[in-house]
Design a protein around this nucleic acid. Sequence first.
DNA 1: GAAGATACTAGACACTATGTCCAGGTTCTG
DNA 2: CAGAACCTGGACATAGTGTCTAGTATCTTC
Lengths: 199, 199
Amino acid sequence: MTNEDRRTLRTRAALRAAFVAQVLERGYAGVRVEHIAAAADVGRATFYTHFRDKEALYDHVVEVVLGELRERITPADWEGVGFTGRPVAELFRHASEQPEVYRLILRGEGDGRGLRALVDAWTTTAYDVFAERAETQRIRPRVDLRVVARAWVGEQAAVLLWWLESPAPRPGTEQVVETLVELSRHGRYWATGFDPVST
Amino acid sequence: MTNEDRRTLRTRAALRAAFVAQVLERGYAGVRVEHIAAAADVGRATFYTHFRDKEALYDHVVEVVLGELRERITPADWEGVGFTGRPVAELFRHASEQPEVYRLILRGEGDGRGLRALVDAWTTTAYDVFAERAETQRIRPRVDLRVVARAWVGEQAAVLLWWLESPAPRPGTEQVVETLVELSRHGRYWATGFDPVST
DNA sequence: GAAGATACTAGACACTATGTCCAGGTTCTG
DNA sequence: CAGAACCTGGACATAGTGTCTAGTATCTTC
């Protein structure tokens, strides 16, 4: 890796950071290329030597985050007892390290493209794990696993966004993740204490 | 209600329909005011006599849908055994009657504003029901009800979008709703057949 | 069926942001 | 220090926005 490359990488990182900050400040539609360039301390023309337009930068940002997330979760995380707990915890931990990008994506900023990318990727991963588990354990699931995977992911997306946008005194990562795991394990009725039969 | 009002209402409805169709065809960012006007069979200037801009029309569309949904679900739907099943079924039924608008909103089109509006409204409603139930029944929930409400809504949003975008041979409303209810009742582990303890 | 009100219309307008281009400047490497 | 990158400001044509105006169509009411 030569040093020209380094310079390029630094500039791109600056543009990414500037983009995220600007979108959270002004909203995706309200951000001008000039704002991003200025916030990244770079000329407007320079922006275009790196990215075709605002959308391209957005896609790049999402790609980077998804790449990091993928690298962080190994197949081993999906093994064993309570096998969904570790991936969820890892997701929340990653998000808490860079709340801005995650808020950006989960809010559906940029016409929802990033949110759909995240949800789709995460859903595919989950479904594959669920399906393979059912396969190897000769289990015949009582419900459609595609629906289960979607539900599982949607649940996390909604809770994660709420958690990231909650003001200062918010529950800790462990507590929220624990709640999600409990819901997976015992169902909402059990967790809330409402008895579906006698009520 | 005079007849001028009628004309106005008809034009607005036409603009709403045109907007939805155009966004699904070109994506929110790709839609020009001219496209909407043309699709509604109306002059471009007319658009501006009804709505400030594209965003205002978008907000109006969301408002109408949320209004309809609210009207459809009475407090009685939240009563009794399996009290979450009926509202969910009603939501899915409403969505299946006008899949286009719901797809538009759930995809996060328009920088996610509509999706957030829908999720927030639905979450608030759910939380209030949950909280009041816990109150009147003197139940001390095992988990944070705010998280439960978020999770419950996120689950539905993700599954509903998936369902609306699935090609022709897709599961029926009843089946999908039934799955969601089962997940609420018994938890994901039970429904998938994976035993969290012995696995 | 005429008068009046209201919605609609085409076209022109200034304005703003986009994306491309270029010629010259800066910064790092070898 | 020479060369190769990256960066730069400014100029440019283009496209879409939102406003306005003067005039036309449509419907109600008497």
